[in-house]
Design a binder for these strands. Structure first.
Length: 487
RNA sequence: GGUCCCAUCGUCUAGUGGCCUAGGACAUGGCCCUCUCAAGGCUAAAACACGGGUUCGAAUCCCGUUGGGACCGCCA
């Protein structure tokens, strides 16, 4: 399919590697990716690493890894702006030659001083243009190159999301396009690259909306057609300021480590600012099919970890036990529940996971629950032990053990049959038997259905755990006996 | 200080002048299911920031007010 102009849609995600891929960046990437996929266009990755002091290789790797984890693949790139200095210089030279840019000899210190001055007088900190008309360079200074902004008239930004916004040219700054060391700056490189890479739609955060009029003038000066712009609203923290590290985990890979599923994160992120009627859960294909910029909202959205957790739980339920069993292994190792040389049987693990996946909202939670199926030594939760592993339930547990010992097939339906007829005979409720048993086997008062638990833990371990529970009761009974005698 | 953006339940949102007594989802409370916990089902409470217009009719269009946010770098 073609874009509105009839050409193939080309969009880009252009992160600067000065940090990990964060939630906001990931959503920008996602919307670009979705837009490209929806319109059968091309998604390009470009690394904006012109800030040499803050950009690192580690961050580039981390961003790539984050995008890979979210399965946002790119058709071109990653391009690197630091590989493209020649191109920017060439364009800058042209502008200089045509008088559309000029040398500026003010030092960063001087500019900083003037800016502070302007702020303290509550005036606009705009560059005063003193080098605009300079006849000859002052001696002993290195020049930066500034873009000559038009000083009168207006520019319109026709934004696909925000609509039309009009800016007065008089308020626009003569921005620096080449630093005094000859390296290019952001507002210049974006335009040159977007032109050079034939970007048709610039989809980015609305923190760039104010940059757009300046960039439009650079397009004009370069003699190029301006692309479509779509400025996405910001993602906010609970205090309604732009989401940042102080709001907690913002790195995409941190969510991976916390046991979130990439599809769930993607689904959550897309619903921040975009909707399709009342639908909450979307497959990738549905997203691609339904996604349009018209349905992107104008207002910023507060990031809500609770809803993400819920969504992740939904994706856990939707995943197959086999998939989850595979995914949970690294978490089991990290939590020291298993070791590298002792990975549980895949089929067994899948059965165990099947009983737990609707009880865990993340892979981390799943790993923790899996612990009582795997471990050799169950830890009793204090309250659970007090309430159920006591003399009152001693006979009860001995009875359960007897029942289980006599069992031929150690599978849930058989176990259930035996226990059900047992409680019928005695005219007691299942809970009466199940709860002490549950604590004896898992150490806690909540778990999947008791018959499944018994089957999965398996005959040998079940009987051992029952023995230990019985011993525990007897032991503490003995202890309290001794205690009484002492008194 | 200047410029710009934004405004529906606590949060994400539906809503494109009459289908709105404002719908869905998360979170919260209650009930059902039930061996516990989940999951699931039902249910309750919860919002059109305010003020003016326009119109037969406004959450929806216009203006203003208020509130919030972003940007104003030889950062991106």
């Amino acid at each position: 399919m073609m874009g509105i102009t009839g050409e193939t849609v080309r969009v880009r995600f252009a992160p600067s590697p000065t940090g990990h891929l964060h939630i906001g960046g990931a959503r920008t990437a996602l919307f670009n990716w979705l837009f490209a996929r929806h319109s059968k266009g091309v998604f390009i990755l470009r690394i904006e690493d012109t800030d040499r002091t803050r950009s690192t290789e580690e961050y580039i790797d981390s961003i790539l890894e984050g995008l890979g984890w979210l399965k946002l693949d790119w058709a071109e790139g990653p391009y690197r702006q630091t590989d493209r200095y020649d191109i920017y210089r060439k364009y800058a030279d042209t502008l200089l030659k045509e008088g559309k840019a000029y040398h500026c000899y003010c030092t960063p210190e001087e500019l900083e001083e003037r800016r502070r001055e302007a702020f303290s007088q509550e005036k606009s900190p705009k560059y005063d243009g003193r080098c605009r008309t300079l006849k000859k360079p002052p001696p002993g200074r290195k020049a930066a190159v500034r873009f000559r902004m038009p000083q009168e008239g207006q520019v319109c930004v026709d934004d696909l999301i925000k609509g039309r916004t009009v800016f007065d040219n008089a308020l626009l700054d003569d921005l620096i396009i080449l630093r005094s060391d000859g390296t290019p700056t952001y507002n210049f490189t974006v335009v040159v690259d977007d032109v050079d890479m034939n970007i048709t739609h610039v989809i980015r955060g609305d923190d760039h909306l104010n940059n757009t009029p300046k960039q439009i003038h650079i397009y004009d000066a370069l003699g190029y057609k301006i692309p479509f712009f779509a400025h996405l609203p910001m993602i906010l923290g609970p205090d309604k300021t732009r989401l940042s590290k102080r709001h907690g985990a913002t790195s995409v890979l941190a969510y991976k480590d916390m046991g979130y599923l990439p599809d769930a994160l993607v689904n959550y992120l897309v619903r921040l600012g975009w909707s399709h009627g009342d639908q909450e859960i979307f497959s990738r294909d549905e997203l691609i099919e339904y996604f349009t910029l018209e349905n992107v909202g104008k207002s910023s959205a507060v990031f809500n970890p609770e809803k993400l957790l819920w969504l992740n739980g939904q994706y856990m339920i939707k995943s197959t036990a086999g998939e989850l069993a595979q995914l949970v292994i690294p978490f089991l190792m990290r939590e020291k529940i298993i070791s590298e040389g002792d990975i549980p049987d895949k089929e067994w693990l899948s059965r165990a996971v099947a009983t737990l996946k609707e009880r865990s909202r993340t892979l981390t939670e799943l790993a923790h629950l899996l612990k009582y199926y795997i471990t050799d030594y169950v830890e009793y939760e204090n309250k659970a032990k007090e309430k159920f592993l006591n003399e009152k339930n001693l006979e009860n547990l001995i009875e359960s053990k007897r029942l289980l010992e006599g069992m031929e097939a150690f599978i849930a339906p058989e176990i259930e049959k035996v226990f059900k007829s047992h409680i019928e005979e005695r005219n007691i409720k299942l809970g009466h038997i199940a709860q002490p048993l549950r604590v004896a086997l898992t150490g806690r008062t909540e778990s999947p259905g008791i018959f499944d638990v018994i089957e999965i833990i398996g005959r040998e371990k079940v009987l051992k755990r029952l023995d230990r529970a019985i011993e525990t009761i007897r032991g503490s009974a003995y202890r309290s006996e001794v205690q009484r005698e002492k008194e």
